[in-house]
Computed example of a mutant assay.
Amino acid sequence: MDTQALRWFQMVADGITVTDVSSMEHATQSGVSRSLARLEAEVGTPLLRRTGRTLRMTRAGVAFKRHVDMLMHELDDGLAAVQQLLDPETGTVTLSFQPSLGSWLVPDLVSGFRAEHPRVQFDLRPKRDELVTTTSAHGEIDLELSTLRPQDAGVRWRRLARQALLLAVPAEHRLASRTAVALADVADEPFITIRTSSLLRHQSDELCDSAGVRPEVAFECDDIVTMSGFVAAGLGVAVVPASPGTAADDDARRLRLLPISDPGAVRDVGVTWSPERRMLPAAELFRVHVVDRAAAGWPSGLTS
């Protein structure tokens, strides 16, 4: 089949008009239409139907497009692989990451890598559901930075750092001068938590459960910065990781971050990848950089 016809089919199926396709591809409208008609003839059934001025997919078109998308993705990867063999300092690294790592770990790793490989681009994808890994042999993700250690034997994981979990309290809190606290010390206080799809929420709940604490959830937030702001405003306490960017500068002066004495108050940060997925040279270079950066040491609050 003509790969150009497949690409035009993708574009029209995604809602782009034949007029716009012809303009974008520097082809005539009749040429695009004939190409789509030849494709339908090869498939053996109509893939598109006209609704007013718009072409929409038939049921056969919907079924066909899923495979076309996969086919063209593999083709593009193959063309990119050849191009990178000619010039390994170019390419794009697709990086998935846990949002709580986006304020410190991701910028640290990307900036250090780009200093040595300035022409490599990044496709950054914050994870929506932290409870599942985004890496697989046939997926789009090259590497994932997360505190989730996958159970899948076909996925590799390497620990980069260990973060202590701290209790964030308002600066004027009765425990603010302590050098360490137990969760039982705040058992009767309102808690500020992160959303249930966050790994931090699950670990915080497990810590509280082990300590015999049933926290009263006063507010549920989408990110750690917002949690810290609520704590700074005196609305409760929160379990947060000890990392750069835990709290915004204005809030940091109104917070105290106290070590938690309960067992298990740490989380491991690691990098995940699939050895079965053929990574292009730029992604492999970045994976090596990530491992080397971890070996070189991290800021305070982290251990390798």
Results as ranks from 00 to 15, higher is better:
residue 50 R to K: 15
residue 50 R to A: 10
residue 51 T to P: 03
residue 53 R to M: 13
residue 53 R to F: 13
residue 55 L to G: 00
residue 57 M to F: 06
residue 57 M to V: 03
residue 60 A to H: 06
residue 62 V to A: 06
residue 65 K to H: 11
residue 66 R to A: 15
residue 66 R to N: 11
residue 69 D to G: 04
residue 71 L to V: 04
residue 71 L to Q: 08
residue 71 L to C: 00
residue 71 L to G: 00
residue 72 M to Q: 09
residue 72 M to R: 06
residue 74 E to V: 06
residue 74 E to Y: 10
residue 75 L to M: 12
residue 75 L to H: 09
residue 76 D to V: 09
residue 77 D to T: 11
residue 77 D to K: 05
residue 78 G to Y: 04
residue 80 A to Y: 05
residue 80 A to C: 05
residue 81 A to R: 12
residue 83 Q to E: 10
residue 85 L to H: 11
residue 85 L to S: 07
residue 86 L to W: 06
residue 86 L to D: 07
residue 86 L to M: 10
residue 87 D to H: 07
residue 88 P to L: 03
residue 89 E to L: 12
residue 89 E to S: 13
residue 91 G to M: 02
residue 91 G to I: 03
residue 92 T to V: 10
residue 93 V to F: 06
residue 94 T to P: 01
residue 95 L to N: 02
residue 96 S to D: 10
residue 96 S to P: 06
residue 98 Q to M: 01
residue 99 P to D: 03
residue 101 L to H: 05
residue 102 G to V: 03
residue 104 W to I: 05
residue 105 L to C: 10
residue 105 L to Y: 05
residue 106 V to Y: 04
residue 107 P to E: 02
residue 108 D to H: 15
residue 108 D to E: 14
residue 109 L to Y: 02
residue 109 L to W: 01
residue 110 V to A: 05
residue 113 F to A: 07
residue 114 R to D: 03
residue 114 R to G: 01
residue 116 E to I: 11
residue 118 P to E: 10
residue 119 R to A: 10
residue 120 V to Q: 04
residue 122 F to Q: 03
residue 122 F to Y: 06
residue 122 F to N: 03
residue 124 L to Y: 02
residue 124 L to K: 06
residue 128 R to H: 07
residue 131 L to S: 13
residue 133 T to F: 02
residue 134 T to Y: 07
residue 135 T to R: 00
residue 137 A to Y: 05
residue 140 E to S: 14
residue 141 I to S: 11
residue 142 D to K: 04
residue 143 L to T: 04
residue 145 L to G: 01
residue 151 Q to L: 13
residue 152 D to P: 05
residue 152 D to N: 14
residue 152 D to Y: 07
residue 153 A to T: 14
residue 154 G to Q: 13
residue 155 V to N: 05
residue 157 W to D: 02
residue 157 W to F: 11
residue 157 W to C: 00
residue 159 R to H: 08
residue 160 L to T: 04
residue 161 A to H: 05
residue 161 A to V: 11
residue 162 R to V: 15
residue 163 Q to K: 11
residue 164 A to T: 14
residue 164 A to G: 13
residue 165 L to I: 12
residue 165 L to H: 12
residue 167 L to S: 11
residue 167 L to I: 12
residue 167 L to V: 11
residue 168 A to W: 06
residue 171 A to I: 06
residue 171 A to C: 08
residue 173 H to A: 09
residue 173 H to M: 10
residue 174 R to W: 10
residue 175 L to V: 09
residue 176 A to F: 13
residue 176 A to T: 12
